[in-house]
């Protein structure tokens, strides 16, 4: 299910004509002002943190890791053995990324990542999770009905494919390395990275080759 004008948390917004900020907006402002007034928080530091996750740390990082693994078999080996060190080679590390395990999709095995207890997610390579990943419907069903969940994402897997669900119950973070689509042998690493979606690295999508130009 997709939503447009209505946000996932269930209410419509009109950003242009929002007369009164919603309650959490006011409360957040009150909290920030209080912490700043007490000299405990520097608003410029908050700006930097917001900017880092809005503009620097996101799924493009993970896509670069996957593309490198596709073109460089030695890198892929290192990634599958020690994910944390392998992402650090490309300059990605940090919050929630240290203990990273990369799991590889093959024609026989499809991996799917969830956190049933909260919302653990490999921030260093994927940034902050989308709302659906943090939502009760995904967290409740990914473990009991992974095939149904994947069907909802438009992905029907053959019965003979083994689905491995990874419930992130500790400080280990999981990154799915999707299958490289056939017909991409001539693509550059950059072009390959552009094909890799966030959802394919969570395990709710596959990666497809670009449609041939008419």
């Amino acid at each position: 299910m997709y939503i447009g004008a209505v946000h996932a948390h269930g209410h419509a917004h009109d950003h242009e004509h929002q007369a009164v900020p919603s309650d959490p907006a006011l409360r957040t402002k009150a909290l920030e002002s209080l912490l700043v007034e007490k000299g405990l928080v520097d608003p410029a530091a908050l700006d930097t943190l917001v900017d880092a996750f809005e503009n620097k740390i996101g799924p493009r990082n993970g896509a670069r890791v996957v593309a490198r693994a596709w073109v460089d078999p030695e890198y892929k080996k290192r990634l599958l053995v020690d994910g944390g060190s392998a992402i650090a080679e490309l300059g990605y590390a940090g919050s929630q990324g240290e203990h990273l395990i990369a799991v590889e999709n093959t024609p026989q095995v499809h991996n799917l990542v969830v956190c049933t207890l909260c919302s653990c997610y490999p921030w260093a390579v994927l940034g902050l999770p989308p709302v659906w990943y943090k939502s009760a419907p995904y967290r409740s069903r990914a473990v009991i009905d992974p095939r149904g969940v994947l069907r909802e994402f438009g992905l029907e897997l053959p019965e003979e494919t083994e689905i491995r669900v990874w419930d992130s119950t500790a400080e280990i973070r999981y990154l799915v390395v999707p299958e490289r689509p056939v017909g991409t042998e001539n693509l550059s690493e950059d072009d390959l990275a552009a094909l890799v979606s966030r959802d394919s690295m969570i395990g709710t999508a596959k990666v497809f080759a670009p449609k041939p130009k008419p």
């Binding site: 997709y2 996932a8 989308p130 709302v131 659906w132 009760a136 419907p137 409740s140 969940v149």
Partner: peptide, 14 residues
């Protein structure tokens, strides 16, 4: 502790 619960509705993507 949501794993395995029913009735939470469809997965809403944006």
């Amino acid at each position: 502790d949501l794993g395995g619960m029913h009735g939470m509705g469809p997965i809403v993507r944006e």
